[in-house]
Write a protein that binds this DNA or RNA. Structure first.
Lengths: 209, 209, 209, 209
DNA sequence: AATGAATGAGGGTTCATTCAT
DNA sequence: CATGAATGAACCCTCATTCAT
């Protein structure tokens, strides 16, 4: 006997329509940017009537919040904490897997990227910014990994709050650039390059410079 | 060529009014954010009439584009190519000076930042994106520096088109984070940390990992 | 005549559903006022589906019209013509009974009042106004009573079409005021006061003034 | 030198437009009722563009509030307290003048009447009801007059809070009836009839009944 | 009979832009 | 040059009504 209220949500309902609106909205944001995406655009793309939109979402903001939450959730699933136990894979391997998952997710859905890379998302100052808080969370994860690495003597001491921001930024920078080119590179190489950069920097020998 | 005048601008002309509008618009952006800045806000702040605005700017976008261009120009001035001649300062010193200039400029004017970090400024696909092209330019500068460094054996060989993007991204990441906190850090340390990260990465010894 | 059925109503039929919708609508009016009462409110209260509503009523107006008609009917039942036969109760007693019935009906159901006192119920000029015609009927009854009273020498001659309107208005005025206060007065006193006013006016002695 | 800010009002401005919108809105209310009067109706009638409306009124409610306030003000001017000094005109004469002013004002502008007689005005429960409070004020004036009259022995003792409501209602009743007929009666007679009713009631002799 | 997802006209409001003065 | 009243397209949202199931 299946309970009919396994996943009862708010007034709006789920269903294929719900998904198609989400899809349409994501596409619209990708091509027009968040602030210019209008309900009219979305319903035109989804092929539904005006009122139907409000059957599934209580207002404009909530669609975008849901898209964002979905994206964040998928992204969060792709990022797994680095384990340092004796039976764990080497840290670099774990890091590589993480980055590969993240990048392949991002590059497979450009619309999603334009959402995640758009710093101007925060619709209103009054609303909290789920995107910003997501990045803060990721930054905190990176920082904590750095702190652990330093404690273990694997990494050099540094101001981890800044370096974590730099690491995250480096990834975003690369993703941002890739979005500008039509064809995608071989992901393994790219990830190696990013990791090498983050681990060793660009210098040739420690005493150069 | 018809007019001998130095610089043909928008339909309208230059003058003190032009500057005061630009100033007002910048202030409004700083206060209310780019997307909520309205013509009404700007003219109220500038103390001019509605129509006067359109005497100096052909539309709303053009004000922000001009502000952006100004910002880019100042930023571009702050970035000077690394010279590697025998009489030049050490590269790291030059890099340090560059980054310090850039960061102090950005952090001193948050309004400017919100424009620079906002990817969605020019949402019209038809219009060119001065911001994107600026970043492309900076990335190219970094890449060219990296290429030179590699040629000279100072830097290790790497895919410079990606590493350049990572370097730029790292800086943006740090700036982005600093904007979220009210108080600013000591700039010298911050810049050193960024440079150390970019040069040496985070690893403790070359053979660690 | 085609159908032998007792009463052809709206397209739909009668039944327990019909009554429960009427009940729900009355309750909603009482709670939220006529103009804010929505179909959604009503069906939620009645516990029926949206479409079901239109099985019993052709549109929103018709529910309220039916409620109004019911109210008018009950009100009409409460008003009985004054009999002046030798075996009848004294006119004042009959009048007193009438007014008491009317007021106790009105005051016991405020929802009903808000419909009855709201002149703007049927805003469509094309539709007849059952409320207005009801009041016209009541006014005619009062006037006819006045005429009879004058003929019999009980009442002073006057322009009965105006005085009837004044009498009816006086009652509505009192009801309207009572609706603004939460607690109800003793009805017998109130009715006496109204009757005294209508019969004797406010003057102390006939020759005062 | 005329000060340019003799009558600076809120954001919206005065002027012929302001008045014409007010006029249009009044007409629309008169013919469609308050709740069905839409901005579209009003601007169509006023012959202005949508945006122009909001140049003069901050929202829909404010137009109606202003209309109501104007009406109330004019009505309030028509009602003057009854003076009972030795040099004053006889009370009945003063009363007659008051009623004549009120009725001639009301009957000369039917649109105004439909506003004043519509009990359903109160646009929102949250907003205060200027109309209701006006009538409360008038009722208080009448009551105070009644109290004075009773003290002086001119009027018979009675529950003045109810009788005042009845008096006011009587007038509203007569006005309401007159609105249903196209042609207006001779005002002097009408007023006399109302006053006679309020003073002496309808009874023939004190001891009748 | 009963349902409820879908509809779309219409609501109030905003704001970049124009143009007669 | 400067003005600011006027514009109207576009915005988000509501809700009475319909119809395939």
């Amino acid at each position: 006997m299946e309970s009919p209220s396994v996943e009862a949500t708010d007034p709006p309902a789920r269903g294929p329509r719900h998904a198609s609106i989400l899809l349409a909205a994501t596409a619209i944001i990708a091509e027009r940017g968040y602030h210019k995406a209008s309900i009219s655009d979305i319903i035109a793309r989804a092929g539904i009537a005006r009122g139907t939109f409000y059957l599934y979402f209580s207002n404009k903001r909530s669609v975008f919040e849901e898209i964002l939450e979905q994206a964040i959730e998928r992204l969060a699933e792709a990022i797994r904490p680095i384990e340092l136990g004796p039976d764990s894979l080497p840290p670099r391997t774990q890091l590589h897997a993480n980055l590969t998952r993240v990048l392949s997710l991002l590059l497979s859905e450009r619309a999603l990227c334009s959402l995640l890379l758009d710093n101007s998302l925060s619709p209103d100052p009054e609303g909290q910014q789920p995107l910003a808080s997501f990045f803060t969370r990721v930054r905190a994860m990176i920082r904590s990994s750095l702190d652990t690495g330093i404690e273990m003597g694997l990494l050099r001491p540094c101001r981890t709050e800044w370096v974590a921001a730099a690491c995250l930024g480096a990834v975003r920078g690369v993703v941002g650039q890739l979005l500008e080119t039509p064809d995608l590179p071989e992901l393994g190489q790219l990830v190696d390059e990013i990791i090498d950069f983050a681990l060793h920097g660009v210098i040739a020998r420690p005493d150069a410079f």
